[in-house]
Nucleic acid binder design. Structure first.
Length: 563
RNA sequence: GAUCUGAUAGCUCAGUUGGUAGAGCAUCUCCCUUUUAAGGAGAGGGUCCUGGGUUCGAGCCCCAGUCAGAUCACCA
């Protein structure tokens, strides 16, 4: 392993510590009495405390030193004085252990008493300390001056996401995002549980990926010898539970979609779905706005928030705009009663990219998406979607072309989607079949599987039900003013880091030959390499175990491939 | 998938027309008892993302690639 000088120095210190009889990774529990915030909030001059944390900065001035200790809640200043720590003749603990063998990043436990410095900083005077865990890699050290300007920040997005642990240690704002994320989940759970709805779990491995139209990840179950799909949605399973007789069920659902990645899409993301029996989408709208108002308050302490340049207020109630009205408002075009051809012509006149595979629903969605969606900044319910793009939604009670569906738009983005759920099993079957036709026509967003077990469940009877789905990642992006989904996920998906592989001299010879042409006939490359049989064998086996090359047997013979 | 931008010390970043690789912080050594981004003095630390090419000579120019970011496309 290639070590930097600083890493070697820290390993040497580790050895020295062990040589002095100090265990750098002790096993025993460390009993602390106060957290950093408790120290500051319940501050009393002269009070004895025991604290633990990571050493984050040091200012050494000879026989005295100030340092900062960081724990789960924040930082507190500690004061090391040689003669306080080493009361006798032996000054090793201060001169050697503290000054020379500790580093920024080490975890230590401290026993001390509180005092206020001349500059007024609440501080712990160290009477004794103990190394709890030695850190072998130097942390980046961002610093802030009095005006809040940051120096030497750890800001490179790639490094921050790949090494989130470092990001969290060093950038306190990052921790706050995830505390808020957790607070949001707690708030929703409380809101639902208080109303008597039950949190449930449904399968992530599904033999039919249903409930949405999206490209699934596929895997294989060996014992059953069948394909299984990672869920793209949990909707159909939650409705089965409503059929089974629960009044309200909800699930925070990790969903997986094998589609593009960008700052608003991660291959796995979290949705919350809730289904409540005997309700309709009008009830659900009111429920949703109350829910979001409550969540915003719990997370931020206020319903008002900023997202980029937009001021957003989650205070209920929100405006309701029909999709038809929205399209008229922004394009002047009335979609009511229009045929597929008329819609396509209108879309073309608006310079939208449309094609023959698009049905009515898709065309309307395109017009809405391009011309209207981005215009709704304040939370707004868009209601009454065309039937064709909502295969799981009940037909509108007043208009058979529409469905009882709403989406909640915030800052031009969808964050919630809800229906009066379709519970007519015969119509549901027809809608699925229509989707199949769209799919065969080439619409890759249409559902291509029919879940017959779900239809069977509906045939037993599902009460009138309203369902709501909320994109949790998106919502937390809005509540924390983060335009990138990667900032609100602890570990966003990244391309794997390429490990640099150490190759032997013989292996390098073969790789260099493969770089010229690949695949190459085994006998040919072997003679070109001019290696002995034994060395050749070792080299090619080495390359195969290091995943640098493969040997493939074809009708033409054996070939070596560069990976 | 397309376009643009970027990758240099542990971190943040300079690097001129192609001519010995730089700064601040961090690290190491020495001095220093109430500081708060930053006390003083000195020292060490580099696969300039990778692989080719041009050239007497490449961190810099050319080609190919890797990774990331932004914009777009895609996305119930």
């Amino acid at each position: 392993m290639q070590l930097s000088e600083q890493e070697r120095v820290r390993r040497d210190k580790l050895t020295t510590l062990k040589g002095m009889g100090i265990n750098p990774y002790p096993a025993d529990q460390f009993h602390y009495t106060h957290s950093s915030t408790q120290v500051k909030e319940n501050f009393e001059e002269g009070k004895k405390v025991v604290v633990a944390g990571r050493l984050m900065s040091r200012r050494i001035q000879g026989k005295a030193s100030f340092a900062e200790l960081q724990d789960g809640e924040g930082r507190v200043q500690v004061y090391f004085n040689r003669d306080e720590i080493c009361t006798g003749e032996d000054k090793t603990l201060y001169n050697e252990v503290y000054k020379k063998l500790l580093d920024i990043g080490d975890f230590i436990g401290i026993e001390g008493e509180l005092f206020t410095t001349m500059v007024g900083e609440k501080t712990i005077k160290v009477l004794d300390f103990k190394l709890l865990s030695k850190s072998l890699k130097p942390l980046p050290l961002p610093k802030k001056d009095r005006e809040g300007h940051e120096y030497d920040g750890f800001q490179d997005a790639e490094q921050r996401y790949r090494q989130r642990y470092v990001d969290l240690v060093v950038n306190p704002g990052v921790k706050d995002i995830f505390k808020k994320r957790s607070a949001l989940f707690t708030a929703m759970r409380n809101f639902f549980n208080e109303k008597g709805y039950m949190e449930v779990e449904t399968p992530i491995l599904q033999s039919i990926p249903g409930g949405a139209a999206a490209r699934p990840f596929i895997t294989h179950h060996n014992a059953l010898d069948i394909p299984l799909y990672l869920r793209i949605a949990n909707e159909l399973y939650l409705k089965r539970l409503i059929v089974g007789g629960f009044d309200g069920v909800y699930e925070f659902s990790k969903n997986f979609r094998n589609e593009g990645m960008d700052r608003t899409h991660n291959p796995e993301f979290t949705a919350m779905e809730i289904y409540v029996s005997y309700k309709d989408y009008n009830w659900m709208m009111e429920f949703t706005e109350n829910l979001l108002e409550y969540c915003a308050l719990q997370v931020n302490g206020t319903t008002k928030t900023m997202f980029k340049e937009h001021h957003v207020d989650f205070k209920a109630p929100y405006k309701r705009v029909t999709m038809t009205a929205a399209i008229i408002q922004f394009t002047g075009f009335d979609i009511t009663g229009k045929s597929e051809e008329e819609l396509r012509t209108a879309a073309l006149e608006m310079n939208l990219e449309v094609n023959e595979t698009m049905g009515k629903g898709k065309l309307i969605d395109e017009i809405f998406g391009e011309k209207c969606e981005g215009k709704f900044i304040e939370p707004t319910f868009i209601i009454d979607y065309p039937k064709e793009m909502s295969p799981l939604c009940k037909e509108h009670r007043d208009n058979p072309d529409l469905t009882e569906r709403f989406e909640l738009m915030v800052c031009g983005k969808e964050i919630a989607n809800a229906y009066s759920e379709l519970n007519d099993p015969i119509e549901q079957r027809e809608r699925f079949e229509d989707q199949m036709k769209l799919s065969q026509k080439g619409d890759d967003e249409a559902t291509e599987f029919i879940d017959y077990d779900f239809l069977r469940a509906l045939e037993y009877g599902m009460p009138p039900t309203s369902g709501l789905g909320i994109g949790m990642d998106r919502l937390i992006m809005f509540l924390t003013n983060n335009p990138s989904i990667q900032e609100v996920l602890f570990f966003p998906q990244m391309r794997p880091e390429k490990k640099k592989v150490e190759l032997t001299e013989e292996e390098k010879v073969v790789i260099d030959l493969l770089k010229v042409t690949s695949p190459q006939a085994l006998e040919e490359i072997k003679s070109k390499s001019e290696l002995s049989n034994k060395k050749w064998d070792k080299a090619i086996k080495g390359l195969r175990t290091k995943d640098q090359a493969t040997v493939d047997k074809t009708n033409e013979g054996l070939f070596v491939n560069l990976v």
